[in-house]
């Protein structure tokens, strides 16, 4: 998300909430269970004025396999307020890969996760569609099903889905805050729960 996306050149951070233009994100930490069953995870509630504000970025800004970069570095490079590592396109050489509306790979093999421009999110069968059809339907960033799986394996640095911030790279306190949060998320994270049908004009990631 850039300043042009939100009409704001900078973002602000208040407590655990970051706002930029009409977009806002609140990060909270939840601890549940006790003893050896204790689970700590972080929840990012993102309210976005437009689904396209949720962007993705490749490790090292390159497409291919075995290309890795820490999520925090990807977030910093792209001015994101919050980033989640995900997908396994760097491990597999098959699958449908569309990022920010651009088709990078069209070899359906498994199930995919599609983020549409209207804010809806869908799990789909890669073998029964094509990347071009998905783009025509408004998909901006389908990812292999491994996106959620990767979120459960934060030890593998890879690509990041990032909700950007209006400020320039590292210019606002929000950017640093987001990077810090990203690091925490990478260490110990629960799989993000994505609503199937978010409210109109609003994409909520929980």
């Amino acid at each position: 998300m850039t300043g042009a996306d939100t009409g704001s050149a900078t973002g602000t951070v208040t407590g655990d909430t970051s706002t930029s233009g009409d977009a806002s994100m609140t990060v909270s930490t939840v601890t549940t269970g006790s003893g050896d069953s204790t689970v700590t995870y972080h929840v990012a509630d993102a309210t976005l004025p437009d689904a396209t504000v949720l962007r993705s970025a490749f490790a090292q800004d390159a497409f291919g396999t075995n290309i890795t970069e820490d999520t925090s570095d990807i977030a910093e490079d792209n001015g994101a307020v919050f980033a989640v590592n995900g997908d396994y396109r760097g491990f597999r050489d098959t699958g449908i890969e569309i990022r920010n509306g651009v088709v990078y790979r069209d070899e359906g093999a498994r199930e995919g996760l599609a983020f549409y421009r209207d804010g809806t999110v869908e799990v789909y069968d890669e073998t029964t569609t094509t990347a071009d059809d998905l783009v025509a339907d408004g998909a901006g960033g389908p990812a292999a099903r491994g996106q959620l799986r990767a979120a459960r394996r934060p030890d593998r640095p890879g690509d990041a889905a990032a909700a950007g911030q209006g400020g320039h790279r590292g210019a606002a306190g929000g950017a640093g805050y987001a990077v810090q949060r990203s690091l925490v998320f990478r260490r110990r994270a629960a799989a993000p729960q994505v609503p199937v049908a978010p409210p109109p004009r609003e994409l909520v990631l929980r």
Binding site: D61, A62, G64, N66, I67
Partner: peptide, 14 residues
């Protein structure tokens, strides 16, 4: 080659 060596298909996606 399979798991470590980079295989860059597009160097600068931006």
């Amino acid at each position: 080659d399979r798991f470590v060596v980079d295989h860059v298909e597009i160097a600068d996606v931006s």
